[in-house]
Design a binder for these strands. Sequence first.
DNA 1: AAGTTGTACGAACGATCGTACAATTAGTTT
DNA 2: AAACTAATTGTACGATCGTTCGTACAACTT
Lengths: 201, 201
Amino acid sequence: MGGVKVDGRVERGEQTRRQILRRAAEIASVEGLEGLSIGRLATELGVSKSGVFAHFGSKEELQLATVRAAAKIFVDEVVTPAGGATGLARLERLLDGWLAYSQRRTFPGGCFFYSVQAEFDARPGRVRDSIAEFDRSWAELVRTAAADVPGLVGDPAQLAFEVVAYLDLANARSVLHGDTDAYARARTAVRRALDRATRQA
Amino acid sequence: MGGVKVDGRVERGEQTRRQILRRAAEIASVEGLEGLSIGRLATELGVSKSGVFAHFGSKEELQLATVRAAAKIFVDEVVTPAGGATGLARLERLLDGWLAYSQRRTFPGGCFFYSVQAEFDARPGRVRDSIAEFDRSWAELVRTAAADVPGLVGDPAQLAFEVVAYLDLANARSVLHGDTDAYARARTAVRRALDRATRQA
DNA sequence: AAGTTGTACGAACGATCGTACAATTAGTTT
DNA sequence: AAACTAATTGTACGATCGTTCGTACAACTT
């Protein structure tokens, strides 16, 4: 698939860009996308401030690129691994995968999107729109996965709402309080919700 | 109760301070406690920057005072109104009260503590400790209210975890997407969870 | 070999940040 | 009326913010 370009300059630039975005996503999950500063990013990576800036052209573009990079990581770690399964197994893999992704601290500040969503949810702009769009697609993914469980009892959208709520609170409690029980509570809640929704009627 | 001091200067100062903190809490629920700047606060309130600064002595103290002021508002709007009830009615009033407090946008950015918790959960410092302590006491309040429901089926801590998760997600969805259904979903989820926990065993 | 392209750099800009301190205004006490 | 006190102001500081610009150099094209 990859193009046949062998331009070492571009390749080097893309590698630098990837390094910037990986670090940016880590920082943003802790300090927020607004707390992420170009100067600090440059210092931590050992490159020049203008070098970082040149890759994006504005801070807003850096933030948008960071969201896209984090989205890719999220998809790789949570969505793709559940790709092989169907029905109830697929829904379970999505939810278990999310909890594992949060718990293993793929991003040091917990789930990247939980952090930045709370930061941007109330202000206008392209960054907020980008985050909202990703969150919407994740919610819809869980909803359709629930709807695809054969013989499901009750409203799949309601079930999806409830189980996603457990995931988010587990992430929040764990990061804020170091509460190691939070993930266990969420797993219990998810399992019981799925049991109720798949029991014989 | 009130002291007999009639010093107009002190009184005026306290009033200014209250105005600052009310506005600060509003701003922080949208832009975050770090996005809140002393200069902007002064401009919006029509007072001098040094006037705002003198009331607190440092930005961290301003942030801490803002958290305390928001906590007082939260208690007045959610905790106190549920004070008269006991048992299941008390738990219901707490949860309904929270949803109403979020939905009526007491703070323009939704629940103040949801916003600032996600902002500070991963960084050290006194502000984070203050937020964590308040969140802990709220979680414990719901937990004890659940434990005080007579004849409860199941673990009250697990029940408290699940219902608080519904509240938080309703707030998040509503603020991020303008999703008007989110509160209805949360109310449905809360009601069914309480029904299950209080059914005849 | 000469010319072009793309990345990264250093220096500087205007603006804003939090903070410091002396001067001023308004209200209280003697 | 004078002395005192507390709230507020104006001015100024160093640091950092995002951004702009001209330049250096390596890699590719002709």
